Each structure stands twice: as C-alpha cells, then as structure tokens.
Computed example of a mutant assay.
Amino acid sequence: MHKKLKSLSVFFPLYNEESNVIPLVEKALEEIPHLANEYEIILINDGSTDATLKIALEIAEKNERIKVVSQENRGYGGALKTGFYTAKYEWVFYSDGDLQFELGEIQKLIEHTEENDLIIGYRKSRAEGFKRELITWLLKIWNKVFFDFPGFIKDTDCAFKLIKKEVLNKVMPLQSNGGLISTELLLKAYNSGFKFAQVPVTHKKRLYGNSTGDSLAVIKKAVKETVQLLNLFPKRKKFLMLNFAWFVVLLLLFPVALSINYMQNDEYTHYRMVAQFLNLDFTLDPYLGSTTHELVESLIGKIILCRITFLTLLLHCLKFVSVLCLGFFLPG
C-alpha cells in the first residue's frame, strides 16, 4: 500500500502556458487526491501575456481546491518564491507547468518522507538535447566554484521537488528571482542541516509553448545574481577574493619571471617541480640557480621571499586553475 501524506500543497509556476494549463490541472487532479488527505493546487501566473491567467481563473471557479495567484513578471525564481509563501500545508511540491514531468512519480518522492526533509528528483536523461545538458553541467561547475555547492546533489535545477514547509520557513527569505533560485534554496537547506533524498524521475519533451530557461537573458541574470548571493556567504566570498588576488599577483609577475635567466642544465629541479604538480603537491619550491638580472631578482625576492623561475610560476598558475576545475569533482 502506497504511503499517503496528511497534507500537501502543490504549485506550478506558469508563464505563457495557455496550451498546457488545462491538461496540467487535469493530470494534477487525477494524481494528487491519492497522495494526501488534505491538498491544494496553486497556479502561479508570472505575468503571462497570453490567455494563461484567464484559463486558470476559469478552472479555479469550478474547483475550490484550486487557487490562482497572479503577479507581474518576476522571473522563474520570483514565481517559485510566491508559491513557497502561498503554500500552507506540511509538505510542498512544485513542478513546472509545461508537462515535462510525470506527476504520478510524486509517489516515488513521498516514499522517502519518513526520514528526509527534502526529496528532490533528478532527471535520468534530459529531453531537450545537448544544449541543455551542457548548461546543466556548467551550472554544476559554477555552483561548486562560487558556492562550494554540495557535490552529492545530482540535478540542482530539476523542477520536481518535495519539501517540508519547515525547511522553507527556515531558508526564506530567498534573494534570487532567476535561475539560481534552486542553488540558493538547496545550499541554505544543506547548511542548515536538513536531510536530503534523491529520486530518479522521467523527463519528457515539451509539447506546447517555448522554454526560456536557456535564453541569454536568463544566463546573464544568473551571473548577476551570483555576485549578490555571495554576500550571503561571507566566508566563501573571502576565499574567492583571496584566491583571485593571488592569481592577479601571479599574472603581474609573469612577464618579470620570463626575464629571469635561470640555469638551463638544471633539469632535475624542473622534473621535480613537474612531479610535485602531478602529485598535487603545490608547495612553493624556490629556484636555487644563479641569475644575471640581480635587480629583478632582488625585487622578486622582496615580494615573495624567493627567486621564481618561469616554470615555478607557471605551475602555480596551473594550481589555481586546477583547484577551481578539480574542485567540482571532489566531495562537497
């Protein structure tokens, strides 16, 4: 016998989904009554310019469990935040209004509610093709580099999540109004010690309307929001600033290092440096050979307390880049 929740709020953010609203609600009314004793279905109209709002209101007039909330266009994150605030029951589920997910699979998430606070779906395969796969992969790297996002989360922006209202009350207010809303939500929940479960879900191609998730405007907004969200995580911001400052110093010293005349026959020293790098040992190893540029050497010695060869400097530049890139593959 399937597990059933005491109460469940379900909401869908909608933007120009006039062709999807009716089949979406029909599918929700087919599935949701079997999942919870008490439930509500909330349609969030995010400033649609088509007939989405009109159709949603007509549907709500016929069923008291359906609620419509309409707002000026605030973006995907803004629509989700409205849904989080409006939802009143113990558990909150949301998905997009484009019918790319099977609502019947909510039951798979409910089975994990006994010991977890957030049950998040991850797409076994994305239906939109390579471009969206690439954006998803880049988002994971972006989140890891800038926010040290937990690496165990498989699909950050999968719009198939079941969350305790208690979690939402804890992590709100949320700042993001765009594509980083899931990053902010999950990172705050993780830092607060809430428990996660992940479940594979089916993803289908959109039948009607157009997706805006991969538009240039959305990507630009995500970059801007990254800077704003870093203010919520001062330790991470400080870490990034220190590493960036060190990288700038290396770049400024790069042309100076090129002018240093080091011993060409000291191959052992450079082989050792390469070996250290390959073993992820980035200890600064000062070059002990002689040089003809005494003035340049003196300047470098005062700045970094040792003489640096071109190879040493190059290895440290590679260190910075590798820490950013390899950090994605390390545990969160």
Results as ranks from 00 to 15, higher is better:
residue 4 K to M: 13
residue 7 S to N: 06
residue 8 L to G: 13
residue 15 Y to I: 05
residue 16 N to D: 15
residue 16 N to E: 15
residue 17 E to C: 02
residue 18 E to C: 10
residue 18 E to N: 06
residue 18 E to S: 12
residue 19 S to E: 13
residue 25 V to E: 14
residue 27 K to C: 11
residue 27 K to G: 11
residue 27 K to S: 13
residue 36 A to Q: 12
residue 36 A to M: 05
residue 46 D to A: 04
residue 49 T to D: 07
residue 51 A to Q: 13
residue 52 T to P: 12
residue 57 L to P: 02
residue 59 I to K: 05
residue 66 I to K: 03
residue 70 S to L: 09
residue 74 R to H: 11
residue 82 T to N: 07
residue 84 F to I: 02
residue 85 Y to R: 09
residue 86 T to D: 15
residue 92 V to D: 04
residue 99 L to D: 11
residue 101 F to C: 00
residue 110 I to H: 06
residue 110 I to N: 08
residue 112 H to K: 14
residue 115 E to G: 07
residue 116 N to E: 08
residue 116 N to D: 08
residue 122 Y to V: 05
residue 125 S to W: 06
residue 147 F to S: 06
residue 148 D to S: 14
residue 149 F to M: 02
residue 149 F to N: 01
residue 149 F to S: 01
residue 151 G to F: 02
residue 152 F to K: 03
residue 155 D to N: 09
residue 159 A to H: 12
residue 159 A to L: 10
residue 161 K to G: 06
residue 163 I to G: 05
residue 163 I to N: 14
residue 165 K to S: 09
residue 167 V to Q: 09
residue 176 S to V: 03
residue 183 T to F: 07
residue 183 T to D: 13
residue 187 L to E: 11
residue 188 K to Y: 00
residue 190 Y to L: 02
residue 193 G to F: 02
residue 194 F to Q: 04
residue 201 V to M: 08
residue 205 K to D: 14
residue 206 R to V: 07
residue 207 L to W: 13
residue 208 Y to H: 10
residue 208 Y to A: 06
residue 212 T to P: 10
residue 213 G to N: 00
residue 214 D to F: 06
residue 214 D to W: 08
residue 215 S to A: 03
residue 215 S to G: 15
residue 225 E to Q: 08
residue 228 Q to R: 14
residue 228 Q to M: 12
residue 230 L to R: 15
residue 231 N to A: 10
residue 232 L to N: 14
residue 235 K to I: 08
residue 235 K to H: 14
residue 244 F to S: 15
residue 247 F to W: 10
residue 247 F to V: 02
residue 252 L to E: 04
residue 252 L to V: 13
residue 258 L to E: 14
residue 260 I to P: 00
residue 261 N to Q: 09
residue 263 M to G: 06
residue 272 R to I: 01
residue 272 R to M: 09
residue 276 Q to R: 06
residue 276 Q to H: 09
residue 277 F to W: 10
residue 281 D to A: 01
residue 291 T to L: 05
residue 292 T to Y: 10
residue 297 E to F: 14
residue 300 I to L: 09
residue 306 C to K: 09
residue 308 I to W: 14
residue 310 F to G: 01
residue 312 T to W: 08
residue 316 H to G: 03
residue 317 C to I: 09
residue 318 L to S: 03
residue 322 S to H: 12
residue 323 V to D: 14
residue 326 L to I: 08
residue 330 L to R: 13
residue 330 L to H: 14
